[in-house]
């Protein structure tokens, strides 16, 4: 019942409310975006707004929190972008997303990162178990996919039990990137290569065969009619303009 209500009534209501709040604008759409793609999606959005009379709102959180918020009714959005297949399946099961509308245009890679000024060097993956590394930051495996991938890689290579006591989790990737940038020389973090800012550098690439393939999944929420603002933007970001932006941000767009 609740899903029906949000499918039909919420967009209508949102439009009515927005129309009265921002009388000058014709339309407004809201994107629920996995944290790791937040910057790139905003860049694509900015290009889109140049040519369209529309306002775009961005909700950047971990994929799991977004999924639960949308399903619980606390978050209302038009398009959902997840950093893992698991949370998109959760949405499909919840009836919030039509399975045939889900696309997966981009992929990503995990790296071991350190503060830009850190002299730390990893000769091999197993160096994580040595005294050189005191703290390893990863995402919360429960809600942040990049944390789940990191845990899977550590388990797959058999060092999870040895390094467990060095682990500290963070809720989402921007938080991890910030914290890592302010850390000491014995701290490393496992994160998407696209989230390395100029305050961080990669010290070891994670072998992609150690974890399931990292793909992003995107779908419109509910069943928007073709020709609405949301579906027009969906096509834009799924098409060439989106591909170019993601490629230049370092994402894998070959899939």
């Amino acid at each position: 019942m609740r899903s029906l209500v949000s499918q039909v009534c919420l967009p209508v209501l949102a439009l009515v409310t927005l129309a009265s709040t921002y009388p000058g604008n014709a339309a407004e759409i809201t994107l629920a975006v996995a944290n790791s793609t937040c910057g790139t999606v905003q860049a694509v959005g900015a290009r889109y707004v140049e040519t369209h009379d529309i306002k775009i709102n961005y909700l950047c959180k971990s994929s799991g929190l977004l999924a639960k918020g949308i399903r619980g009714g606390a978050i209302q959005a038009d398009i959902y972008i997840s950093a893992s297949q698991r949370w998109m399946e959760y949405m499909v099961k919840g009836g919030l997303v039509a399975a045939d509308k889900v696309v997966s245009p981009w992929g990503n890679r995990l790296v071991v990162g350190a503060p830009a000024g850190s002299p730390l060097k990893l000769e091999a993956w197993n160096d994580l178990t040595t005294d050189k590394v005191k703290t390893i930051l990863i995402g919360d495996p429960g809600t942040a996919p990049f944390g789940r991938y990191a845990k899977q890689a550590l388990q797959r290579t058999g060092i999870w039990e040895q390094i467990k006591q060095k682990i500290t989790t963070t809720r989402h990737i921007t938080l991890l990137a910030d914290r890592l940038a302010q850390s000491d020389n014995r701290t490393v973090g496992i994160l998407f290569s696209t989230n390395l800012s100029d305050r961080l550098r990669s010290i070891y690439p994670v072998d992609p065969t150690w974890h399931p393939e990292i793909r992003y999944y995107m779908a419109p929420l509910g069943a928007p009619e073709a020709g609405t603002e949301a579906s027009r933007f969906f096509e834009f970001i799924n098409g060439d303009p989106g591909r170019e932006a993601f490629q230049s941000a370092g994402f894998d767009v070959s899939g």
Partner: peptide
Amino acid sequence: SAEFEKEAAF
């Protein structure tokens, strides 16, 4: 929780 599976633990 110690395995960092907070979600399932909750």
